[in-house]
């Protein structure tokens, strides 16, 4: 089936198999491999993308459902190689370790901050609870989101020396 989608501002017209997920279309059809598959069952959030302004697990959406839609993936987050505010904060706060959850995590944070520009710690945790991270323990991600939302005073992660 022929679909037309806008991804990170570019329009693509592609033939897709009806059973292809949006995740597979993005990765295998468009070569946008920054979106990852962690479980294929909508549980881990590694495949999170923005579909018409709402985050979805792209492993649960069919590519044909995205016909006519506007999609944003992690590849659209930086601007001409310049990191976005969220990305820069992630880098400063060691909010990335293996990086496999990072793309989906950043998409969820972006969605959160669009809805709620100054979230509390609890609201941040709620906003990213659908995104598993097995490496960081989330704390430095929360700090990065506080920083990215202009709440640097609250983003006080310290290693104490005793």
């Amino acid at each position: 089936m022929l679909i037309s989608v806008t991804v990170n501002g570019d329009v693509f017209e592609r033939e897709v198999e009806e059973h292809w997920t949006l995740l597979r279309f993005l990765r295998d059809g468009l070569g946008l491999t920054g979106t990852k598959e962690g479980c294929g069952a909508g549980e881990c959030g590694a495949c999170t993308v923005e579909l018409d302004g709402r985050t979805v697990n792209s492993c649960l959406a069919l590519a044909v459902e995205a016909d006519g839609a506007s999609i944003r993936t992690i590849e659209g987050e930086a601007d001409q190689g310049r990191l976005s505010t969220i990305q820069a904060a992630f880098a400063r706060h060691h909010a990335v370790q293996c990086g496999f959850c990072t793309g989906g995590m950043v998409m969820s944070v972006r969605d959160l901050l669009q809805r709620n520009p100054r979230p509390t710690v609890e609201e941040i945790k709620e906003g990213i609870e659908g995104n598993f991270c097995r490496c960081t323990g989330y704390e430095q991600i929360v700090e990065a989101v506080l920083d990215a939302s202009g709440q640097l005073d609250a983003a006080k992660g310290v290693l104490r020396h005793v």
Partner: peptide, 15 residues
């Protein structure tokens, strides 16, 4: 900052 963090943050890092 981690030396490989930028490519992981942009989705460029290849696995």
């Amino acid at each position: 900052p981690r030396v490989e963090t930028v490519e992981k943050l942009t989705g460029d890092a290849l696995y």
